[in-house]
Nucleic acid binder design. Structure first.
Lengths: 242, 242
DNA sequence: CGTCACCTTGACTGTAATCAAACATGGTGG
DNA sequence: CCACCATGTTTGATTACAGTCAAGGTGACG
């Protein structure tokens, strides 16, 4: 699956500090679905996405999956403070990354490399903040709130484009939000019926948001109950009207 | 609520580095239920528990609560890389802490303080690991698996005592696991019926674990379904026999 | 044009939530 | 010392949100 394209050096500048020296970044390419690294493998490299997108996740023995984060162009992932990766990373679509060796932060010579550990701290602190917010979402929010939060997050990370193109499928969204694909699909349909979003073209991954304000309100707190039978939008409309 | 006991200096040794200088730690005491710091408040201090226990949590506007972590004697909490606390912290029971000013890690003079930022990194990395594991639990595990995982975690953190005394009530456990108190209580009852644990004395917070191995297996992966009506342990027994 | 992957929708089920009541515990003050 | 009350836990009955099972649609690609 892994398709190595070339080995030219790339000076990213902003990331040189992370590895403590003028870095030689290599260009790698992964095909859709390819594993970039596996959970519990030695954490040798850090990655920065040039194009494409990546999911990082954990698995239970029976295959249940929890996606911890999506990584988009410009994002750095695979930064660990320990010896091993704590997630598996896979390319969601064909993806190109810059890759570089990460010096062990807790190694004997770590003290020499102050700026590096500062950068690592920043990155890890950002991951922590994201994870902590996600705890609240997974533990205490409804399916509608979860999907609304997901759309709001993606909208912001993609810089609120006129048409948001989601790289990931319903399965990935479901595993990110702790739901099933059917529930995700139903919530999308409800949001479409309520004119909060619409689908552009025929692919259902291209989305136009019609009311970011409503969406953000739903993401944070909604009294909304999904209607599975009976009139389809009585409770829904009530919830959305908040 | 806050009850300041004294202001004597305490040299903890292991934590001096964290604040970058020989530290003057103050002793503070909080009564049961007292707020130690609030979410979004400026993060001025770090705390180390001398006795008692603390919960850190986030709230939704309607009061839904997600507890991110429990902190026990010896634990350090309140370490932030940013300007503000990202959780609220409350004393679960009457609690005594050591408190110290945390130098801003990302301040202008941060470079001078290499060991401190290394310590902060360690602490934050540990928090991140805990949070990431908790994502999988909240998003993809059943009520039984959640409670089993909670008991296993507490057992380990309390060093597997003969009788485990839980400082927190069912409400806290529920808000940690993304469940209700009733569901937590029902799962405890099932585990008692299955002779995996029993309650010591009359308080139902003192627990004896009879099979840590079974519990650990349940925590990671169980086919078990709760039986709410009908014969009480048919499916249960099947699940537990794995 | 047929197959495959992905998405949606419908019918029904089940796990955990909600609503409700009983019981235990522990502290307080009479 | 005990009655009383607030708090916390268990248990039962029922509900509901999301899951499961199943079918059908659509687009991509060979």
């Amino acid at each position: 699956m892994l398709d190595r394209v070339n080995f030219q050096t790339n000076k990213t500048g902003e990331l040189d500090l992370l590895i403590g020296e003028r870095a030689f970044w290599s260009d790698f390419r992964y095909l859709r679905g390819a594993e970039i690294f596996g959970e519990a493998e030695p954490a040798e490299y850090v990655y920065k996405i040039r194009s494409g997108s990546v999911r990082t996740f954990k698995l239970l023995p029976d295959g249940r999956r929890q996606i911890g984060a999506f990584h988009l162009p410009g994002d750095i992932f695979g930064v660990e403070s320990g010896e091993v990766y704590r997630f598996t990373a896979e390319a969601i679509e064909d993806t190109t990354v810059w890759i570089a060796k990460l010096r062990r932060i807790f190694g004997e010579c770590a003290d020499e490399n102050v700026p590096a550990s500062k950068d690592v701290l920043k990155l890890i602190a950002r991951s922590l903040q994201h994870a902590e917010n996600h705890l609240l979402l997974l533990g205490r929010q409804t399916s509608l709130e979860k999907v609304a939060a997901f759309l709001t997050e993606m909208d912001q990370r993609l810089h609120s484009p006129a048409v948001m193109i989601l790289p990931m499928g319903r399965r990935d969204i479901a595993d990110y939000l702790g739901l099933t694909i059917e529930t995700v699909s139903r919530v999308f349909s409800i949001l479409e019926r309520e004119r909060i979003l619409s689908f552009e073209g025929l692919r259902h991954r291209e989305i136009v948001l019609h009311s970011r304000a409503k969406l953000a309100r739903l993401a944070l707190f909604s009294e909304l109950k999904l209607e599975y039978r009976g009139s389809r939008d009585s409770n829904l409309a009530r919830g959305l009207a908040v």
